[in-house]
Amino acid sequence: MKIGIMGGTFDPIHIGHLIAAESAREQAGLDEVWFIPTADPPLKDRAPRAAAEQRYEMVRLAVESNSRFRVLDIEKKRGGVSYSIDTVTELRKQYPGHTFSYIIGSDRMNDLPRWHRIGELSKLAGFIGLERPENTLQLDGLPSYLRETLQLVRMPQIGISSTELRERLAGGLSVRYLVTEPVFDYIRRHRLYGPRNDD
């Protein structure tokens, strides 16, 4: 099976993540997309606002209606800083008949050389880069071994970020329709990200 990996903090997961995953699945010919919430992200300046268990549960709720999407808790169980090389090594041991590709946004493609043990990782997994209509990608600075493993797919222009959602919730604004309804209900029930997220 061809598997796409969507990693991230998902703090919280929103419809942009789901649209990105579906775009990659269709255009890259993936059998499934597996969402893997991080425990502690290595390239983030700030710790996630929601706990790992809460972020995992929101992802589970967001993807449960799509039979081609799954959520895995391997990074949450491992704890600490999550490196992609450790995750894909574990996945290849557990699923030896599968091939894996990381799905990454256009804003992260030029960060690939900074990924931990990227040379080894590029031999174990491919990369699917999401091109947005408003972005002209300049990938000439990437090493050739990374350009060779990078497949570009197009996705609709969706101007949503988890940061924006957290700011809206902190300001007492609704995020309904920016997240799935089960995730919206979860955020509201657990009063995540702000004092007033129940309207």
Rank of each mutant, 00 (worst) to 15 (best):
I15E: 08
G119Q: 08
G8T: 03
S174V: 02
Q94M: 14
S174Y: 01
Q54D: 15
Y193R: 07
L61R: 12
L18D: 06
N66L: 00
V59R: 04
D107V: 10
E57M: 10
I36R: 05
R60T: 10
R168G: 00
I103S: 04
Q151Y: 05
F35W: 12
H14Q: 02
E32N: 09
Q94L: 15
A39L: 03
M109E: 04
L130F: 11
R168I: 00
F10E: 01
H98S: 14
E64H: 14
P156H: 02
Y95T: 03
R49K: 14
I3L: 13
G8R: 03
Q151C: 11
G97W: 04
R25M: 01
G171N: 15
L173C: 10
E120M: 04
A47L: 13
M109P: 01
A21C: 09
P133F: 09
A170N: 13
T87W: 03
G79H: 13
P96W: 02
K2F: 09
G159N: 15
L124C: 05
G16R: 00
E75R: 12
R68L: 07
V183T: 05
V183D: 01
I104Y: 02
S144V: 15
S67L: 07
H17K: 01
N66K: 08
S122H: 02
E164N: 09
G79P: 13
P41N: 00
E134S: 14
I103L: 02
H116F: 04
